[in-house]
């Protein structure tokens, strides 16, 4: 299929926004303003951008602790995400979530789940509700290669296939489960794709650093879901530019491998492609400048925002807004 230029520019813009946002998150961690930990998706932006562009309003994104990209690119406001990372009053979850739990239900960003595998059955359940209610929603569930070894992965894949649920499972295979090469802990070559036949599904592999390829694959899988033909399991080959989390310098990766993948940076690749397609370099420069300005604005606004009101500590355990467990 031919992707039109406005869509391509949009894909580029979204990848750049995600890149600059996460680079800023890294810098703020070094500054000591971002506490706890962060799991950055630097280098994996093409997966988030390609899928977000293919999804519609009403579709539901379920992602992991490495979920800044996915939440931002579904449309969550950058300043509210920054506020959550820094634990400020403008945080999208009021400071109760943090880096690993960014959520914006109004945009279909249904949560970032930090226990590996848990959100696969949850995403399947959201898709089941769409099926029962007869809506044309689909849910998309992103997870890492390490997730393919946990039970919830297999329970979710099986029931989603048996019930023909409108859910797309997307394995972002960045070659490492935390600090360990995925190849050391699986008996097959492809952690997700080679498991797909066990659930009657096609093993789909896509270059996760080629945003056009991701976008087209996403459109096909979402169309299949909406036609009622059931789930897809997509393995997107990609690479983390950094370590698993803030505590990880990622020294276990061979430098030749890192260099090879850095040459395949999805944003660099796409910039070159767009220029080859006769997009003006000035247009790309402008997109980058705008993204940087947006990140700067979100950062300054957040830094100027106070911590959350402490009254929020005891709210929203229950639907009545409170936390009372006794009369």
């Amino acid at each position: 299929m031919e992707i039109d230029t406005p869509t391509r520019l949009s894909l580029y813009r979204e990848m750049v926004r995600a890149r600059y946002f996460e680079q800023r998150a890294y810098d703020l961690f070094i500054e000591g303003l971002l506490k706890g930990t962060t799991h950055l998706g630097l280098g994996q932006e093409a997966v988030a951008a390609g899928f977000a562009a293919a999804m519609r309003e009403g579709d539901m994104t379920y992602c992991t602790y490495r979920g800044h990209n996915h939440t931002l690119l579904r449309g969550a406001p950058m300043d509210a995400l920054m506020g959550e990372l820094l634990g400020r009053a403008n945080g999208i979850c009021g400071g109760k979530g943090g880096s690993m739990h960014l959520t914006d239900v109004t945009k279909g960003a249904m949560g970032s789940y930090a226990i590996v595998g848990a959100h696969l059955p949850i995403a399947a359940g959201a898709a089941w509700a769409a099926q029962v209610r007869g809506t044309d929603q689909a849910s998309v569930c992103f997870f890492g290669d390490g997730t393919t070894n946990i039970g919830a992965f297999h329970e979710a894949l099986n029931i989603a296939a048996v019930w023909s649920l409108p859910v797309v499972f997307v394995c972002e295979n960045n070659l490492y489960m935390e600090y360990t090469p995925i190849g050391d802990v699986i008996a097959v070559e492809h952690p997700a794709a080679d498991r797909a036949p066990a659930y009657g599904l096609e093993g789909i592999i896509v270059d996760g650093n080629d945003v056009d390829a991701v976008y087209e694959t996403a459109l096909r899988a979402l169309a299949r879901a909406r036609r009622g033909e059931g789930p897809s399991l997509i393995e997107a080959k990609t690479y983390r530019h950094g370590g698993h989390s803030r505590a990880d310098p990622a020294k276990y990766r061979p430098s030749a491998e890192v260099e090879e993948w850095m040459k395949r940076d999805p944003i660099v690749l796409y910039r070159d492609r767009l220029l080859a397609l006769a997009v003006e370099v000035g247009d790309l420069d402008q997109i980058e400048a705008e993204a940087l300005a947006e990140v700067d604005h979100a950062t300054e606004l957040t830094k100027a925002t106070p911590p959350p009101d402490v009254a929020g500590l005891m709210t929203e355990v229950w639907a009545d807004g409170g936390s009372a467990w006794r009369n």
Binding site: M60, A124, A130
Partner: peptide, 11 residues
Amino acid sequence: GMIMGAAMNGL
């Protein structure tokens, strides 16, 4: 997990 997801989407 499925009942959680379903509860998030209107059931």
